[in-house]
Computed example of a mutant assay.
Amino acid sequence: MCTAFVSIEPEAAVPVLLLSVRDEYLGRAWLPPDHHWPDRPDLLGGLDLAAGGTWLAVDPVRRTAACLLNGFGPLAPADARRTRGRLPLTAVREGGIGHLDLTPYDPFHLVLVRADGARVSSWSGGRLEERELPSGLSVVLNDGLEGRAADRTTSERIRDLMAARAAHFRSRLTAEPRPEPTADGPAAAAWGGWLPIVAGDGLAPDADAALIQRRDFGDGRIWGSSSISLLALGPDRLRYDFAAAPVAADGPGWRRVATG
Rank of each mutant, 00 (worst) to 15 (best):
N70S: 14
G71C: 06
P74D: 06
A76G: 03
A76I: 01
P77Q: 09
A78Y: 00
R81S: 07
R82P: 00
R86E: 14
L87N: 03
T90Q: 13
R93E: 15
E94L: 12
G95E: 07
G96C: 04
I97A: 08
I97Q: 06
G98T: 02
G98C: 06
L100T: 09
D101C: 08
T103A: 15
P104M: 09
Y105L: 09
Y105M: 07
D106I: 00
D106C: 05
F108W: 02
L110G: 02
V111T: 14
V113P: 02
R114Y: 03
R114V: 02
G117W: 09
A118M: 05
R119C: 10
R119M: 11
V120R: 03
S121Y: 04
W123T: 04
W123N: 01
S124P: 00
G125V: 05
L128H: 02
R131V: 14
R131E: 12
R131G: 00
E132W: 09
L133K: 02
G136I: 07
S138K: 05
S138C: 05
V139I: 10
N142Y: 03
E146W: 04
R148M: 06
T154Q: 14
E156K: 15
R157W: 08
M162P: 00
A164F: 04
R165Y: 01
F169L: 09
R172M: 13
E176R: 14
E176Y: 00
E180S: 15
E180W: 02
E180N: 13
T182V: 10
T182L: 11
A183D: 12
D184N: 11
D184R: 14
A188M: 07
G192Q: 13
G192V: 11
A199L: 06
D201P: 00
D201M: 03
P205L: 13
A207V: 01
L211N: 04
